[in-house]
């Protein structure tokens, strides 16, 4: 019962964030978040499909697809906002390799743990890379109104909360359902909450 309420809260925040992204579409076109409404639509679709689908293996497949699209989307977004940094390209290549390894070594209808762990770690590294570059730039003066700051903070918080879970997945040990739900709710609410703040920030080219 408790876990159901928590999941509803998470999905509500996600839908709200998606609505805001479409409502602010004209503004978002001016900045770096131009493709975010499409990504949010994709996330909503995955959640809706997962909700109405009762088959566990398809569910896992959907979330694997979600993971792959999410990591590739954010790597390309980081590549754009970090002025085509070569390190981002390198990390992107690492992720693609881990994905290939996962597809070869793991069951696609199960969880692709290698790509998930590597992807989460890459997100963590890219967030640190972004912060390092932001702290050296003049944009720091008004970082509170910087959409990229909120997006990256959301990603970092999600990564920090999600990393212990992904590590426990790789060790075939999953903490209790309630703990996973609680952590997922907190990180998802923060992630989509920060995304919403980013969509509401003034967008600059």
């Amino acid at each position: 019962m408790m876990s159901d309420i928590l999941l509803i809260v998470t999905k509500l925040v996600l839908f709200l964030s998606a609505i805001i992204s479409f409502w602010r579409w004209k503004e978002l076109k001016l900045g770096n978040l131009v493709y975010f409404p499409f990504y949010m639509l994709f996330v909503v679709l995955i959640e809706v499909c997962s909700h109405f689908n009762g088959i566990s293996s398809i569910d896992k497949l959907l979330y694997t697809l979600f993971d792959i699209v999410t990591y590739l989307f954010f790597i390309s977004w980081f590549y754009k906002i970090l002025s085509k940094n070569k390190l981002v390209v390198l990390l992107g290549v690492c992720y693609v390799n881990s994905l290939i390894f996962s597809l070869i070594l793991e069951d696609i209808t199960g969880e692709l743990k290698i790509q998930s762990t590597v992807g989460t770690m890459i997100m963590f590294l890219l967030s640190i890379l972004f912060y390092t570059s932001l702290i050296k730039s003049n944009q720091l003066i008004d970082f509170i109104r910087l959409p990229a700051f909120w997006i990256v903070t959301g990603i970092l918080i999600f990564t920090l909360g999600y990393l212990p879970i992904t590590f426990s997945l790789t060790k075939d040990f999953l903490p209790s359902r309630n703990v996973v739900y609680l952590i997922l709710v907190v990180v998802n609410v923060l992630l989509y909450g920060f995304f919403s703040i980013a969509f509401l920030c003034p967008q600059k080219r």
């Binding site: 970082f143 920090l160 212990p164 879970i165 903490p175 703990v179 907190v186 923060l190």
Partner: peptide, 24 residues
């Protein structure tokens, strides 16, 4: 282990938020 993961995750999140905003 469950307690450890929960406490670590929550502390990491709170710590990261405080750290990021303080430094920035």
């Amino acid at each position: 282990s469950v307690l450890l993961i929960s406490v670590f995750s929550i502390l990491a999140i709170i710590g990261a938020l405080i750290f990021i905003f303080t430094v920035f």
